[in-house]
């Protein structure tokens, strides 16, 4: 007997591979945006700390916009804005640009908090010992301030990893978009969503627990 033709077919091992590839894409776009965004955010944070009035009047409001407009709107806006100024960006590139700026806007505040966490007496002491400004920044502020805000930074990084799911709105097939595609075909939403959710959870939960335990340890 001939098997009946159907638009729908069950969940096959191949689909698992499809999901795994999509998960890698999620990891790739997150890792890229988080690493560039962190460096950029640290620089912004330093500018916000040192620049005082000029920075508060220029950089701070700009960064604030990225924290006050939904990420999904930023993505759609930028994706449609790029061609207007003659940039030819694919969904991946647009996603990386916006996620990077978004990360930087969040990290800037964290970084400024980190610099503020290092007391002025300590920094004066460093300078009195003959360190240059940059040596002070590199050998005193970075280790001490970095340690103070590391848990907060982990929170930001995990948040961006989860928010990278929104790049799917531009058509980039990351994990959640892939799940959606598979759900449409296999009609097995529960199984597929559980797999996707388990991936995010398995990534985020241990890291957040680790950060929390570090925070407790350092607080002592």
């Amino acid at each position: 007997m001939q098997p009946s033709l159907s638009f729908f077919s069950g969940f096959t091992p191949n689909d698992l591979w499809f999901l795994a590839e999509a998960a890698l894409r999620t990891l790739w776009i997150s890792a890229l945006s988080i690493s560039i965004g962190t460096v950029l955010g640290a620089i912004f944070g330093w500018i916000l700390y040192e620049g005082k009035l000029t920075a508060t009047l220029t950089l701070a409001p700009v960064l604030d916009v990225f924290r006050s407009v939904p990420l999904i709107i930023q993505l759609v806006l930028f994706y449609n804005f790029a061609p207007i100024v003659g940039l030819d960006l694919d969904p991946f590139a647009s996603g990386v640009v916006i996620l990077t700026i978004y990360t930087a806007a969040l990290v800037a505040n964290v970084a400024r908090g980190g610099i503020e966490a290092v007391g002025l007496p300590m920094r004066r002491a460093a300078r009195s010992l003959g360190m240059t400004y940059w040596q002070d920044l590199r050998h005193v502020v970075l280790p001490i301030g970095g340690r103070a805000v590391f848990p907060a930074w982990v929170g930001v990084a995990l948040g961006v990893m989860k928010d990278s799911a929104l790049v799917s709105v531009l058509g980039y097939v990351e994990l959640l978009k892939a799940s959606q595609i598979l759900i449409t075909r296999t009609q097995e939403p529960f199984l597929i969503l559980t797999l996707a959710g388990a991936f995010y959870f398995a990534l985020s939960y241990p890291v957040s627990r680790f950060a929390a335990s570090l925070e407790r340890k350092w607080a002592q």
């Binding site: 995990l158 989860k162 959640l176 799940s179 939403p189 959710g197 995010y200």
Partner: peptide
Amino acid sequence: RNTPALFQLFFFGFGLGAF
């Protein structure tokens, strides 16, 4: 706290549809 908000929406959307 450890899954994307979009995933949670999809779950209430399609996921519960399975039942």
